[in-house]
Structure formats: C-alpha cells, structure tokens
C-alpha cells in the first residue's frame, strides 16, 4: 500500500484540496503507483467525499491532535508552506512537495520553504503546477535532511549563564 498525505495545517487551503482531489490529479497519483490519499483539510470549505474502491481509497478529515501517525505511514507528503509541517515531514525522512498559497502574500513562512528547496530538501510548486511536478519529479534527487543541532544551543546557553556542570 502506497500512501500520499496532504496537509494544510490549522488554516485552510481550498485551492490545494480542490486541485489534488480533481479527477486529473487522482489519475496521476494512481498512475504513480499510490493507492491511498489522505486529505487533512483544516477549516477549509472544500471537503471532497471520501470513497473506497478496490484499487483506491480517499480519506478526508479536518484535524487530529497529532499528525504523526499519518506522516509515519505516508510515502509522499504534499503540504502547505507551514514551518511546522515542513520540518516535521523532513525529520521523518519523507519526500515532501510544498505547495505555495499564492493568495497569501508576504507570508514569511515562504522564506523557509524556498530556502529548504534551494538546499535540495524538498520540491516546491503552486497549485497550477502541482500535477506537472507530480509527473516529472524524481524523489531520489532529494537530499536527506539532517536533524537540528540543539545540543549546540544548550552548550552555548550553559556557557553564557555560567552553569557549572
């Protein structure tokens, strides 16, 4: 079973949900060998009907306390540009496509997605270019994301506050 997980975080991103659940996109996703699509739609107004056939399952929900479980079982994550979603996905070592919401101008979270894209950790597109990207992308070109070095921070802090070991 191969699974695609789409997440929009605590906000809404109707364009993405509409685009990814459109007939054409579903065909592309099927043709890539995925047989399950999970949509986390937040407080959006576009809410596709879930269905399940022998060859394909579509699940839809608004929120869960933790997305950990769905991230774990996903083979590909399609996400809004939220820092939390991006970092959590990358840390789990899952291939990630970030879709930019063009209706949110001056959204500073884009900075992070763009930078992570520049460094080769994720793919990056808009709703209109998503189907094309899904077909053309090669997941093996993505770099593995190294974990943050929080121990450097604690060492720095211990020093500046004068903490004795």
């Amino acid at each position: 079973m191969k699974c695609v997980f789409v997440t929009v975080g605590t906000t809404s991103f109707d364009d993405l949900i509409a685009c990814v659940s459109a007939h054409d996109s579903l065909q592309i996703i099927k043709s890539l060998g995925y047989d399950r699509l999970i949509l986390q739609i937040g407080r959006g107004t576009v809410a596709p009907e879930p269905f399940s056939t022998e060859s394909f399952t579509l699940d839809v929900y608004r929120y869960k306390d933790s997305l950990k479980e769905d991230l774990e079982k996903a083979d590909l994550v399609i996400s809004h540009a939220g820092a939390g979603s991006c970092l959590e996905t990358l840390e789990k070592g899952k291939p990630l496509v970030v879709v930019i919401n063009e209706k949110l101008m001056n959204n500073h979270q884009l900075e992070l997605a763009k930078q992570l894209h520049k460094e080769g950790y994720l793919f990056y597109c808009t709703c209109s270019t998503l189907p094309g990207l899904l077909q053309s992308m090669d997941l093996s070109t993505l770099k593995c994301y190294p974990p943050g070095q929080s121990e450097k921070f604690s060492a720095f802090l211990d020093k500046v506050v004068g903490l004795q070991k």
Binding site: T10, A83, G84, S154, D158, G162, L163
Partner: peptide, 27 residues
C-alpha cells in the same frame, strides 16, 4: 551557578513548538 530559574515565552503555534524543542536539549 548550579541552577537557574527560567522564564519561557511561548509565542503560539509554531513558535511554541520551536521553543519546546530548544528546551528539550536543556539540562
């Protein structure tokens, strides 16, 4: 010093997540 009292400002949303990750590494 051997210990110190700490005030952590939990911003909201992603800010809180980030600051908690930093706290995780503190002794």
């Amino acid at each position: 010093r051997e210990s110190l009292s700490l005030v952590v400002v939990a911003g909201s949303g992603g800010h809180t997540t980030e600051i908690l990750r930093l706290l995780e590494s503190l002794s």
